[in-house]
Design a protein around this nucleic acid. Structure first.
Lengths: 217, 217
DNA sequence: CATCTTCTTTTCGTATACGATAATTTGAAT
DNA sequence: ATTCAAATTATCGTATACGAAAAGAAGATG
């Protein structure tokens, strides 16, 4: 827990964007935010700078700072890259994972099963993060792992949503099993392909969800 | 050209880190930098924040901000990811590149040839950027293109250096020809593999260079 | 009604000041 | 010499103020 006002503002705004409280195009006024969080403009500016840096907001000179939700196209693009990174992690992990790490991976997957039993998609999301964290750890490339985490974070609200599609959780779980199997047998190529697909499917499911919700704006 | 002091400070410091004027571990003192650039702490802080954000500096609380050059290991990791991203760009470009874009790609490669004729490795670096920009443009995934650019930027000083290895430029050029060939014929997989290798080789060459220069520190 | 010209208001970037807290040094006591 | 405590200094985050520049509004002129 950082006691810095700037960090808190950043996290709050980020959260509000993720949960939809702050919608696309909405103005992020320095003065208003400062008042809302009872701080001065300085930490607010710092937060906005980071927001822009991480792509959640857009700065239009002399006009202000605005929430920037990714368009459907950008979403698909991000999922495409995410799929590649996850695939790469799995490929490397298949070569490099130790016995201990494999056990942790299996354990994480049991957590996912439990979440399904409880029918709790938010819990599944968390357990799923654990599962993929195991793979990140085992890929032996910290830089890659961090990039993957960064992007995962950026996509998290959409990934959460996507899990609500009927049957998606159990499908995800069976994909996990295939991934474990491939890694366990050192089938790097296969682990990569399945993992990549595992993410791409999420993009597609999300796409379905959108199409269902908004009949072309 | 941005007239903002903060941006200028950022770019200057970034440049000085890239050129080695500012070395690993060196302290980035807010007051000193402010004086050096004749600005107040505010824009300097902003610049440092971005520096940390892009991984070029590290912040140790109550100790200060320090230049953070990547370790050899981190370098290799970054090259590994760069290779994957470039490979992905090439794979997609092979499927999606238009005739016009292909012509631009070929033209860019002629520029590379010229740079070799002139024996100018810095020029080659620039022309090589043009070459790869063509591929980025044609990959049809802007988000991916931006990620690739970001990482390329981060690695540029090392990539520059690596081109000084004897024969590396002409080897690079022949790899380009193979890439063009694969793309022209829509051989996505092959374009990916060659491009990936094209980058990995750079990492290895750079590694050689390092091993030659510093006999294990 | 359109257009051009003030005038006012926002937005922005920067400068500067201040208090809090952590790091470092100094110096005393064992 | 070592250890501990107090004093000093540096760093940091934040608040606030100010001027420049641009956007937007209001009003004048054709």
């Amino acid at each position: 827990m950082s006691s810095r006002a700037a960090t808190q503002v950043f996290q709050m705004v980020e959260e509000q964007i993720a949960t939809g409280q702050l919608k696309d195009g909405e103005k992020l006024d320095e003065a208003t935010l400062a008042e809302r969080f009872n701080v001065s403009r300085t930490p607010v500016r710092e937060a906005l700078l980071q927001l822009v840096g991480s792509g959640l907001a857009r700065q239009i000179p002399k006009r202000g700072c605005f929430v920037k939700s990714p368009s459907l196209r950008e979403m698909i693009e991000m999922f495409e890259v995410m799929a590649e990174l996850e695939g790469m992690c799995a490929r490397l992990a298949a070569r490099r994972m130790t016995e201990d790490q494999l056990n942790l991976l299996k354990k994480a997957n049991v957590g996912c099963e439990q979440a399904i039993t409880d029918g709790d998609s938010d819990l599944y999301y968390d357990k799923n993060v654990d599962f993929h964290e195991c793979i990140y750890d085992a890929c032996g490339n910290q830089f890659l792992a961090n990039e993957a985490r960064r992007l995962r974070r950026r996509l998290r609200s959409f990934r959460r949503l996507q899990l609500r599609v009927r049957g998606r959780m159990s499908q995800s779980l069976s994909e996990h099993s295939e991934i474990i199997n491939a890694i366990e047998n050192g089938l790097a190529e296969q682990a990569e392909i399945i993992s990549r697909q595992h993410v791409m499917i999420q993009g597609e499911r999300f796409n379905d969800l959108l199409a269902h919700m908004e009949p072309t704006p």
